[in-house]
Design a protein around this nucleic acid. Structure first.
Length: 261
DNA sequence: AGCGATGTTCGCCG
DNA sequence: TCGGCGAACATCGC
């Protein structure tokens, strides 16, 4: 699932369901998902509670005093809070059993997600070299980040050290809405365009969060429903172009998104 | 039945 | 050091 809107949805779900309950048992069904030893995971969590959570980019950090559990979801991660009476969800890799009738399952279908333990948020962000959180950043900081970079804009978005949280799909949507060609050099953008881009990042992510990360019911005027071959631009009816960049497929409208801005 | 996939990381090269 | 590329990771659904 996850780019920023999905992870924000996981955060709200975890906050609503799983805080303040004693963790009495942890079951790890696949150790490849752990970046730390199982014993350290247990030492850090057992007998404690999930106190609060913070999302930075695509990462969710859950505070347990004194450490943080870091959840990353790869391309196919999920969380499910379920009654102990029921079977664990399919592809559960770690199950947190609370001192209640419920468990929280960390699910990773394709094993791309990871769980880690860290001492502080600042240290984590620094070690991972993560940029500003795309949803929380202010305009001046964003402008500073843009001016420090020389890469083409699509690659910049995919690089989490530029700004954190935007991935392949939402970056296409943001560039479409901003009428920016994905291969535009990011440092060629002028102030007005940077401002417009900033506003569109916020709006696209906000809409995504309101949709709870569900991409399947987007209105026609967005690019998202048209990210496939032989689709047409909802604004001008030109055929959408598919291109490859950094080993991924991106989509854009060659008429609405011209190189020059 | 092969290919592609909302992510990250690492090594290589310019 | 940065930027871009390609591969690797793992596995399921189309």
């Amino acid at each position: 699932m996850p780019e920023l809107p999905e992870v924000e949805t996981f955060k709200r779900y975890l906050d609503k369901t799983s805080l303040k309950q004693l963790i009495k048992k942890i079951i790890v069904t696949d150790h490849r998902i752990l970046k730390i030893d199982e014993s350290f995971l247990k030492e850090s969590l057992l007998g404690k509670k999930f106190e609060s959570s913070i999302r930075h980019g695509k990462y969710l950090l859950v505070f347990l005093n004194p450490r943080y559990l870091v959840m990353h979801f790869g391309m196919t991660g999920d969380l499910e809070y379920y009654n102990k009476k029921d079977d664990p969800p399919k592809y559960s890799k770690v199950i947190f059993q609370f001192n209640t009738d419920f468990n929280l399952a960390y699910i990773s279908t394709r094993m791309f997600g990871k769980l880690d333990i860290v001492d502080s948020i600042e240290e984590f962000i620094k070690n991972k070299k993560l940029g500003l959180d795309a949803y929380k950043m202010g305009f001046e900081d964003f402008k500073g980040a843009v001016e420090k970079r020389t890469a083409i804009i699509k690659n910049a978005f995919l690089n989490q050290s530029f700004i954190a949280g935007v991935g392949n799909i939402y970056s296409d949507e943001i560039l479409f809405r901003s009428k920016i060609h994905p291969k535009t050099k990011i440092n060629s953008l002028h102030e007005g365009k940077i401002k417009e881009l900033f506003t569109n990042i916020k709006d696209v992510l906000k809409f995504g969060i309101e949709k709870q990360g569900d991409l399947s019911t987007y209105p026609n005027q967005f690019l998202i429903p048209h990210r496939k071959l032989e689709e047409r631009c909802p604004a001008c009816n030109t055929e959408i172009t598919r291109f490859e960049i950094g080993g991924r497929h991106g989509f854009f409208c060659p008429k609405c998104q011209k190189e020059e801005n």
